[in-house]
Design a protein around this nucleic acid. Structure first.
Lengths: 236, 236
DNA sequence: TTTTCATTCAATAGTTTTATTGAATGAAGA
DNA sequence: TCTTCATTCAATAAAACTATTGAATGAAAA
């Protein structure tokens, strides 16, 4: 039947996309690329994959039109193909938390172990920024900060927080944010801040969610440049 | 590293869901279940799968918490686990059409072959219903109509349209709708209507989209009942 | 030109997914 | 009780996916 063939082709083509999403590493890669363009080695470092393996996963995502690549100098930068990719990932993330008890448990158990850290919503942060009652701190690696960050946020990469913490004011609330709800960098930062007499809290979601909500951001002009050997892997 | 383990578990758990979505038959099943609860045999008939195979795919979806099942009499009815499942499927569908040229091509080629059929948006239909200038016709199988349909729509299953067409008024515009944008039943209906001197057009999306948009629907009171041997497979 | 090196390619073995088949289950009806 | 039959289960072979390894590519730098 003609219509059967059509439907078979259509759903098959659709599943090309969903198949590409059906792998834990590729989901993690998408979550990372939501921060901005990244080279293969950076992706590999931050996802605990070998370079060859990361490259292959990136190619799978590329063939499914979920990411695009662009050569800059000797690096090949991959990024999400468009906003809808991030929105779809958000829908999946939300679905996971609603439907899968195990995901909730994993998440809550992990966060509880690290004390009860204060969390604030995007709306609350917007209000607090208006009254100038908070300092917003971006704890992601500097590269990601440069690719785009919440307006007026300060870059305090988690790795450098120990050395730089004294630059922060003790009398203001410090709101830390990171890659997103599945990222624990902001939690680590808040715990460390609280231990040192600061009043810290974490933004519930991360930079990509903020940006997707059309809230004010800033971007480094010359984010093309990349110093030799400067690539800093995450500690995880 | 502790955080690495956590992330690995989290993304792995998430991929349980996306893996279940990574198969063309299961996408088609989800699209079908968006119409309402359906028994295994009905799913099998409408997706061109063997009963055993359909059952297995349904179980995969169930283990991923995407669908739920409920025994009624001797039938096992499966349905989408919640609204977010449909919303996620919509996000994926949208992504497919935005990103995948091949999907667009498939779709447009197929529709062009069947003449240029007039399509109207949900908003337009809402307006036209207010001015009472249209007759809305549900061309899905009767079972699906009974599970829920657009308010005041008439049930004209595609299979019975030929016999029942004379019951429709020639002076009003007839708007046909079906399962959704990937379903071609409404197209078939409109083509047949136009060939017979009616002024037909198809609603762009389908019943589940209408319902998800909180637009007015009706539901049969006694949709539990199912007459023996009444199960009508689609013609595809 | 030669060297360097980020990335990709190609081959492979191990694992997972898939469709098919026929049998088993078990609830409803006779 | 026995029969019916919608669904699930179990086994299997074919296909697809995955991580690993080491080599190949090819553009930038020396």
């Amino acid at each position: 039947m003609d219509i059967r063939k059509f439907k078979t082709s259509l759903y098959k083509e659709m599943s090309g996309m969903t198949k590409a999403l059906g792998n834990p590493h590729r989901l993690e890669i998408l979550d990372l690329l939501a921060q901005g363009p990244a080279a293969v080695e950076y992706v590999a470092l931050n996802t605990n994959l070998s370079v060859a393996n990361a490259s292959q996963h990136l190619q799978v995502l590329k063939n499914a039109f979920l990411v695009e690549s662009e050569k800059r100098g000797k690096y090949n930068y991959y990024k999400l193909a468009n906003k809808q990719v991030f929105e779809t990932w958000c829908a999946l993330r939300r679905l996971g938390f609603i439907q899968n008890e195990e995901i909730n448990k994993l998440f809550n158990d992990f966060r509880k172990k690290r004390k009860h850290l204060k969390t604030i919503s995007t709306d609350d942060l917007v209000k607090k920024i208006k009254t100038d009652s908070v300092v917003v701190v971006d704890v992601r690696p500097e590269e990601e900060f440069k690719n785009g960050h919440i307006e007026n946020a300060l870059s305090f990469p988690l790795m450098e927080l120990r050395e730089k913490i004294s630059e922060l004011p003790k009398e203001k609330e410090i709101v830390a944010y990171c890659r997103g709800p599945l990222c624990m960098m902001a939690d680590d930062a808040v715990e460390f801040l609280n231990q040192n007499g600061y009043s810290g809290s974490r933004l519930e979601k991360g930079y990509p969610d903020w940006s997707a909500g059309s809230l004010p951001i800033e971007r480094d002009e010359c984010n093309q440049r990349k110093e030799k050997g400067k690539t800093q892997g995450s500690i995880y």
